[in-house]
């Protein structure tokens, strides 16, 4: 199982506490596979992380894994092994910005 940590506002929308555990299927564990599985399980998150049509990440959302900012990694590249094994979580972050 893949572990995903969502930011506060997305946990509220999805009505979850703490981490989310996802089964992303048998293929390679990629950023896209994780987000697809997340949106399938929590359709209320569709459009809040990625644009509905273009599937582009929203500008003020970032992805961290294993103490690295993996935001700009290709969406179909494998995520770090520790995330794929469930040892470490995949973190969705709301960028630090004013408001």
């Amino acid at each position: 199982m893949i572990r995903v940590v969502l930011p506060h506002h997305l946990r509220t929308l999805a009505a979850v506490d703490g981490e989310v555990e996802l089964d992303v299927g048998g293929g390679p564990v990629t950023q896209r596979a994780i987000l697809d599985a997340l949106e399938a399980r929590y359709p209320m998150l569709r459009g809040t992380i990625r644009d509905h049509s273009t599937q582009q990440r929203r500008p003020m959302v970032r992805f961290f894994a294993c103490q690295e900012d993996v935001t700009h990694e290709p969406p179909d590249a494998p995520v770090p092994a520790a995330v794929a094994s469930g040892e470490a979580p995949f973190r969705v972050i709301g960028a630090i910005a004013g408001g």
Binding site: H9, L13, G47, T48, R58, V61, G94, A97
Partner: peptide, 22 residues
């Protein structure tokens, strides 16, 4: 919000509880 974009909420009980339609 600028971070997570647009959400539409709907209530069927006068605003006590809410859901995203669909």
């Amino acid at each position: 919000t600028s971070w997570f974009g647009q959400v539409i909420q709907r209530s069927n009980d006068g605003g006590k509880t809410w859901e995203q339609p669909g």
